[in-house]
């Protein structure tokens, strides 16, 4: 469903990605782990169009999308829930969710009705969000904002979803809740690429995983294989 080949990208003169290759099969959860600064978030941004790769291919559902603007890639069916959540603070929770489905909805009127089924689905998944649907997103707690960011991405009914550091800055209890949600989405058959610094939790939900070091994939395999790999244990699971 998502294929990344020999991806090079960076900021200005410094190249962060030096040839990343990975694949996400339909209906699987793939984890991308690695140290701070290894290039995980840069990989996500290069896939979703936040930065333009200097070399390499990104294939989404059979279409090459590298070099397109982020909005164009999003319209092709990629939903990226970015690092730091990035909810639209001044807008209400419900407006945030509606904007998640922006590319599928009518621009002027009648959009609320058309999106009501998806809204209900997200509200069922995160009952807290239903309670706070009229509240400004910026006033939610960190955990609720993370729920909102995931819900917003789900609203797009994406072919592939990218989820970047959902546990960042959250209390462990909330982190566990986030991972329970991911397991549930997995059971529903979502296609997900997950970046996570809590390598252990990520490996628990993933079908397949990649370990990044200095801008490229160093090790890959199923969670079981990685859990037996000495190097991975020493660096990320120890």
């Amino acid at each position: 469903m998502l294929l990344v080949e020999d991806l090079h990208a960076g900021y200005g003169a410094s190249e962060v990605l030096t040839g990343t290759t990975l694949a996400v099969k339909p209906g699987t959860v793939v984890a991308l782990i690695g140290a701070n600064g290894a290039g995980k978030t840069t990989t996500m941004r290069a896939i979703s169009g936040g930065i333009h790769p200097t070399k390499g291919r990104v294939v989404l559902d059979g279409k090459e999308v590298q070099g397109l603007d982020a909005s164009a890639i999003a319209r092709l069916g990629l939903a990226h829930s970015p690092e730091g959540r990035k909810v639209f603070g001044p807008l209400s929770v419900e407006d945030n969710l509606l904007l998640g489905a922006y590319s599928r909805l009518p621009r002027f009127l009648g959009y609320r009705a058309k999106a009501s089924a998806d809204l209900d689905r997200v509200y069922d998944l995160f009952p807290k969000l239903r309670e706070r649907s009229g509240q400004a997103a910026g006033t939610l707690s960190g955990g609720e904002q993370q729920m909102l960011a995931i819900g917003r991405a789900l609203m797009a009914r994406p072919k592939v979803m990218l989820l970047d550091e959902p546990s960042m800055g959250l209390a462990p209890v909330i982190v566990q809740e986030v991972f329970r949600t991911i397991s549930r989405l997995k059971a529903e058959g979502i296609t997900l690429l997950l970046v996570e610094q809590f390598a252990k939790s990520a490996l628990e939900v993933a079908d397949y995983a990649y370990v990044m070091e200095r801008g490229r994939i160093a090790v890959e395999g199923t969670p079981a294989e990685l859990s037996r790999n000495e190097r991975v244990i020493a660096a990320y699971l120890g």
């Binding site: 209390a171 462990p172 982190v175 566990q176 991972f179 329970r180 397991s183 809590f198 252990k200 490996l203 628990e204 939900v205 969670p223 079981a224 859990s227 037996r228 699971l237 120890g238």
Partner: peptide, 21 residues
């Protein structure tokens, strides 16, 4: 440990996904 470091890693972790804590 609770607020910042998280649970210390379990002694070993093999044989597929462990049960959710």
């Amino acid at each position: 440990v609770e607020a910042y470091l998280g649970q210390p890693p379990e002694p070993q972790l093999d044989g597929g996904p462990a049960p959710q804590p």
